[in-house]
């Protein structure tokens, strides 16, 4: 029914619980109820990708999900990407290659790239471009981001082969 519901989910390896009305968008729930403002709202119709998070390990738009749908799910937001204060190789590479300027699309861009490297650890440039086309950036012209993903992919592969 339309009354608020209890929602219990795991975000960035931590169980969290709150209540939300069924119509509350997951992105608003993350930002307003769980205080995770790293996930950004850019279009609320699934095109810009700024709100992209990982839902059960897979990239998804948090503006096209209801908070109630995430009950029981495991989510990763940009706040959960760096482990123990150490930047993820993608974050490092974004910095090196000037893959961000205003930083507003960056959370969605990072998690989209993360998902790409999970399903395709050695993407070529065309595959990187196709994957990143899921997120709009208006600052960088994308080339720095593409280079960053190439670099991070290489480093992640090297780390695994070691």
């Amino acid at each position: 029914m339309s009354e608020s519901r209890r929602i219990r989910l795991k975000v960035n390896c931590e169980w969290r619980e709150s209540r939300a009305a069924p119509r509350k968008l997951l992105v608003d729930f993350l930002r307003e109820d769980l205080g995770l403002t790293g996930t950004h709202v850019g279009c609320e119709h699934g095109i810009c990708g700024a709100c992209t998070i990982l839902v059960n390990g897979e990239a998804a738009r948090s503006c096209l999900m209801l908070a109630v749908q995430a009950d029981g799910a495991e989510l990763t937001t940009v706040e959960g990407l760096a482990a123990h204060g150490k930047l993820h190789p993608l974050q490092e590479a974004f910095r090196e290659h000037h893959g961000l300027q205003c930083g507003f699309c960056t959370p969605g861009m990072l998690l989209t790239a993360y998902d790409l490297l999970c399903v395709n650890p050695a993407p070529d440039e065309e595959e990187i471009r196709a994957a990143l086309s899921a997120v709009l950036c208006r600052c960088t012209g994308y080339l720095g981001i593409i280079e960053a993903v190439k670099t991070a992919a290489r480093r992640l592969r090297e780390a695994i082969s070691k």
Partner: peptide, 18 residues
């Protein structure tokens, strides 16, 4: 490398909606 990047890469930026 930019000073601005670390908070923005880790979800700690502070935009108007935040």
């Amino acid at each position: 490398k930019r000073i601005e990047d670390l908070p923005l890469l880790t979800g700690r930026g502070v935009f108007i909606a935040d």
